[in-house]
Every structure is written in structure tokens, then in C-alpha cells.
Nucleic acid binder design. Structure first.
Lengths: 355, 355
DNA sequence: TTAAAAAATGTTTACGTACACACTGCGTAT
DNA sequence: ATACGCAGTGTGTACGTAAACATTTTTTAA
């Protein structure tokens, strides 16, 4: 059992005071070359590990974490992210972190900019961002950089955006998983890749999924499946049902539908109305509406994006970085979880992510 | 921002000293009814949350955690558990926990008893146990109870065993998931449920899986599948291959094999030799041998028991309980993760479980 | 009734770090 | 010569809790 080495011990070894050692460790300057050298030598030699408990207790400054993500009332997809974030907060607030949520309309640049402004106004020490809007996110990231505020992003990866860490999924591979499932479950025929009233800014995000899906199908399903991309109207518009019904008429051998977003329930609802529930339907995310149809069997499988975990890890990473000054990974891909009727509950029962 | 309430504040509010408050909080006795009442009233009123950081710093006693599980060299299944345990250790040792591993031969009661003895000899403050051997585990749990050492179990649930917390999976449901997958992937015909040279003590453990599997098949696959249970020789014996070959001859319409343990690779190897790789093979756990055959396609799907996470959580729970004196859940079921060729890598890349 | 024992209560210190503050020389400006 | 600034250094206190220790009050026994 190696005895713990304290700043006091280092000071004694280097024949200086604790204050000097402290200044060296934190690069606060005001140290003579002579003393600096002596302290560094000792540090080198003994591999000093600061006691994070003591450090946290001592500098009991609360770290402010601003969270910037779409309003779950406008898109239920984000509900689970929020849950993960709150869970992380409840576990970490004892370490002196404060979390403030800024919710924006995922399709409004103005809304984003306003919330971003408010977030910065709060003078946070770290920011967790869901960069759904490309241009706006880039501008915001730049603002963070000039203000020296560490930024962690989740869910949507934007290449050029400078950030401390990204937490999300491999979208390309996620498309391949969907295709694999489709090949397992659907009979040979036409497979639709549907885009539902999507905004332009999501194109990269969704494009990767489709590429992966088609890649797998080209390799493994060539002889059995014909993949066709269709654009449907927005579910809020009255045209939605018609556009789907018409598509199914145009492609009478449709055996499967891949929905690249969390909106599979919209398709499921319409399929049930049209009496076409035999079509194999694969979508994303364990939001309530999807679960209903997964349970009823209209949705055959969902790929779980682990958004809850994304949010949880986002806060955890920022806490580790700011409070404990631990290194955090630049990229964290979460598992591509396949959810079916039978293993659904085993995912739902995990409301807690600790660890 | 609600100001933090310290013991000192409580003492002032109740008109007693800090010492008295401390005694009340920790039930140390030596407090008059009068004072007790006053303090309890204040505590009731203000919902006191102790500062765990300060608490840990103050009582800087190292907690010793003994881990008792099978030797991964004797059964590779346990390798990932160890990884999770070590990961948890590396994240928690800053809070003053020491972890010592005691590895036993999973099929030898003597080996277990010896390691158990050594573990207790070390005088641990908490124990993490994989109770693979029923009788021995029960005896050990009793010893823990008389010694007042908190016990957390993982992987194998034993009903009558008194423990602080269990971490594992819902085995019955896991069988259902396997059946669901089988129904998706296999053509109609005979499905074998194989038991490979299993020991008697595992019977309960494995029985639950088979029951779940059959339950699903009875409900959903009645018309397509015939489920037959077969007992194969141990893979270490030369009879193994023969016993499988013969079984396949006896059941010529075999379209799927469900292996209730992590030994699917043994079947896969033999299937490849026999040239019968078209049989749909479903097993458990991401151990290296299994991965090879999952990648080659001979194994169609694996159910991931998240053993790494089980180990990680085991240590985390004990740390929370002993160091931070946090309440921990009595039962924690982990997700029944479905792993296929396409989402395999997304599971493997998650070497870190933090959070 | 009083000394001793026991119970109750109060006070102090330690945990390891961070940081404000105090102090020491030394050179420069007044 | 005295005051001042300044770099370098050392000291003290706070963070909130736990636990050892010291003191007071109450109870018990002779």
C-alpha cells in the first residue's frame, strides 16, 4: 500500500513551502527558476496525484453548466436527453455544479440564437450543446471559443465545429444495422427509405444513415431487395397520409420501410389505417409513440440512440473536466442498440445510468 | 440558489453543539431525548443533505473491497467482468477504495471455499460476488452476514441469498429475446436448445432462459417451429463433435440452435467442420471466440449480458454504499442487448462505462 | 452529603487542497 | 535616508465533516 503523497510532502522534499509547490502545480508564476526546478524534479520523480476530493472541497466554487437543446414539447425525441441530463445533475450537484437548461425550437434559427444569447449571458463555465442547426451552431461554437468556454456536443456531429468532446452514434453504421434488421425481417421486395418533411440542415445527419443502409443492401441484399428513397409530406400537413398511400400504390411490392428519424410512429399510424401492418417498419428511438406501435407489432424494431445516456454523459464529461480536471475523450460513440418487443422492457427499466 | 446547510448551521438552529448533531445523524447515542428531539425536528424541516465530498475527505479510511469470481483463464466468460471491475477501480480509487481479486475455479467447490476464506481473511469492508456455485455461495453469504460485511452479487441470482444488491439480467426475458430473434432469422423447422456439459448447480440459471425461450415459441412460433432440448457432451471431451453430429442427424430439419451459455463458439466450430453453417445459431456474450464466428456469420446473433457493466456497477455500488453512504438499488437489471455483425463494433468501442 | 461514575454536551483537530494574505529582501524613486 | 514597488516566498484559514478529546451536568453509590 503506497502511502499518499501530499503537497506538504512535496514541499518538504523540495525544501520549499507549500505555497511554492501550489504555485508550480497551477502555473501561477511568481516562482524563482531555482525553486521551480527543484519542485519539478520532485514532481517528476513521485508522480503526484492530487486528491480530487480535497481539491473539490477546498475550491468550492460552483461550476455553471449551460445546456442548449431543442424543446421536447416541440419534438418529443429530446425528452430522454433531458432526463439523462437531469439524472446526471442530481448525481453531480453534490460536487458543486449548477445546470441551466436553454430550450430552443429545433427549426428556428432565431429561437436558437436567442437561447444561445441567454445561455452565454448566464456566464457558464461549460456548455452542452445539441447542434441541430448547422450554421447557427458553428457561429455559437466560435463564440464559445472566444469566451474560452469549453463546449461538449451530442447527438449531431458537425465536422468543422471545434469542441472538447462529441457524444453520439456512428450514423453510417446505424444505417447498416437497420438494413441488416430489414434483411432479417422483411420478405424480398421493395424497401422504402423515407424522409419525412425534413429540413435541409439535417441532410448530412440523415444522409449518413441512408448511405449506410444502401451500402449494406448493395452488399448483402442485392438479390432480394430494391431500395427506393421517398420524400413524404410533413406529418403536420393533411397531405401526409395521402403521400404515403400514394407511394405504396406506386410501389406495390413494398415489404419494408426504413424511417431515418424518430417519426416512425407517424408511418405506423397511417399503416394501421391503411391496413398494411404487414410491412416491416424500422425506425429510431424509444419515444412513447413509437413504443405503442412497437408493442402492437406495427413497428418491428427500433434503433435506440441512447439519447438519455448521451445527455447523462455530456454533463458527466463537463463535470469531470471542470470539477475534477480529468481528461475526457474527444469522441464517444454509444452502442447501436437494437430494440424489439421482447427486450424493450429491459431498456426501459434502466432509468438510472450511473455508472 | 439555495444556500448550503451545514452541520454547524443545524447545530445553531437546534441550539446544540456540532457534536450533538453529529451524534444524532450517525445514531451514535449519548444524546438526551430533549436534544434528540430538537435536532430531529430541524433535520426534518430542512432536508439535510450531507456534503459527501467533505465526508469522504474527513473520514479518509480506505475501504477494502474483495471481489470473488471465477478465473477468466478457466472460463473466458469472466474476462469482461474483470475489465469492468478494474475500470471501476481506476475511477474510484481516488476516493480511497482498495480492490482485491480472488479467483476461483468455477466448477470446484474446494477452490471456491479456499478463495472465500482468503477473501475474508483480508478483512474487507465490502464484497462483490459471482455466486456460480449455489451451496457454497449460500454458506459464504451467511459468513458475510455474521461478519457484518455488505455483499453485492452479480450475474447469477440466487433467491434465498441475503445480499445488499443484485446486478444482472432477467434470464427468463432473455430467453424470450433469443426466441424472438430465432423466429426472425430461422426458417421453419426444428430448433434445438442445447445444454453443453453443464453442471447441476447451473440448472436454475439456465432453466429460466429455456423457459422463456419455449414460452415465446409456444405463443408466437407454434406453427413454424418445433423446439427440442438436447444435452451435448462437454466440449473438452472428444465426444462433443460426435454428440452434435448425431443430434443433427436425429433431427434433420434443424434450422436453429440456441445455446444458453457463452459456449456458442464450440457449436459454431463444429458446424463449420460439418459444413452446416446455414443453421441459425444464437448464443451469449461477446467473448473473443464468439466474435470470430459472429463476424464469419456462423453465429447469427449474440445476446450481450453486459458482464463488463455488471462488474463496473458492482464496484460502483459498493463504493457508493461504503464511501458515500448513498442508498443503492436492491436489484439492477441490465439491458438485454442484441448484438449482430453490424452493431458489434459499436459495443466493442465502449471500453469505458462511466458514467 | 459527597465522591465517583456515567451520561451528555461542547470544543478542537485533522483530512488535503486552494487561495488570500503576510512577510522578506532588493532595487529604484523620492 | 526613507518610502515604495515588486518578485519570491511562507503562513494561515476555509471548505464541511468525523472523531478524538475536554468539559459540564446528571446519576449513582457509599
Amino acid at each position: 500500500m503506497t502511502k499518499i503523497i501530499r503537497i506538504k510532502d512535496i514541499a518538504e522534499m523540495a525544501n520549499v513551502s507549500m505555497g511554492t509547490v501550489d504555485r508550480v502545480i497551477h502555473n501561477r508564476g511568481k516562482v524563482s527558476e531555482d525553486a521551480l526546478k527543484k519542485v519539478l524534479e520532485v514532481l517528476e520523480q513521485i508522480n503526484y496525484k492530487p486528491n480530487l476530493i480535497a481539491r473539490t472541497l477546498s475550491s468550492s466554487k460552483t461550476q455553471r453548466l449551460a445546456v442548449l437543446l431543442p424543446d421536447a414539447d416541440l419534438d418529443p425525441f429530446w425528452r430522454s436527453s433531458i432526463l439523462g441530463i437531469r439524472q446526471a445533475y442530481s448525481e453531480h450537484n453534490q460536487f458543486g455544479v449548477a445546470v441551466s437548461e436553454y430550450l430552443f425550437d429545433p427549426y428556428s434559427g432565431d429561437s436558437f440564437r436567442e437561447q444561445a444569447r441567454k445561455a452565454l449571458e448566464w456566464q457558464p463555465d461549460g456548455i452542452l450543446l445539441a447542434p441541430t442547426l448547422r450554421q447557427e451552431a458553428l457561429a455559437f461554437a466560435e463564440a464559445c471559443q472566444t469566451n474560452q468556454i469549453p463546449l461538449v456536443c451530442f447527438n449531431t456531429h458537425i465536422n468543422e465545429l471545434a469542441m472538447l468532446s462529441f457524444i453520439g452514434q456512428d450514423l453510417h453504421q446505424s444505417g447498416r444495422v437497420a438494413a441488416e434488421l430489414m434483411a432479417m425481417m422483411a420478405s424480398p421486395g421493395t424497401i422504402l427509405v423515407t424522409h419525412i418533411g425534413e429540413q435541409v440542415q439535417n441532410s448530412v445527419h440523415i444522409g449518413a444513415k441512408e448511405t449506410g443502409f444502401r451500402e449494406f443492401m448493395a452488399q448483402k441484399g442485392r438479390n432480394h431487395f430494391e431500395v427506393i428513397t421517398v420524400q413524404l409530406a410533413s406529418p403536420t400537413s393533411p397531405d401526409f397520409e395521402n403521400s404515403l398511400a400514394q407511394t405504396l400504390e406506386t410501389h406495390p411490392h413494398t415489404k419494408g420501410i426504413y424511417v431515418t428519424t424518430s417519426k416512425a410512429y407517424e408511418i405506423a399510424r397511417t399503416l394501421e389505417k391503411l391496413g398494411k401492418t404487414h410491412v416491416c417498419l424500422i425506425g429510431y428511438d424509444l419515444i412513447d409513440d413509437n413504443l405503442t406501435y412497437l408493442r402492437s407489432g406495427t413497428i418491428n424494431s427500433l434503433i435506440h440512440q441512447n439519447s438519455d445516456r448521451q445527455g447523462f454523459l455530456g454533463i458527466s464529461y463537463l463535470t469531470d473536466y471542470l470539477v475534477f480536471q480529468k481528461p475526457i475523450p474527444a469522441l464517444r460513440y454509444l452502442p447501436l442498440s437494437i430494440v424489439t418487443r421482447e427486450n424493450l422492457d429491459s431498456y426501459l427499466s434502466n432509468i438510472d445510468f450511473s455508472q
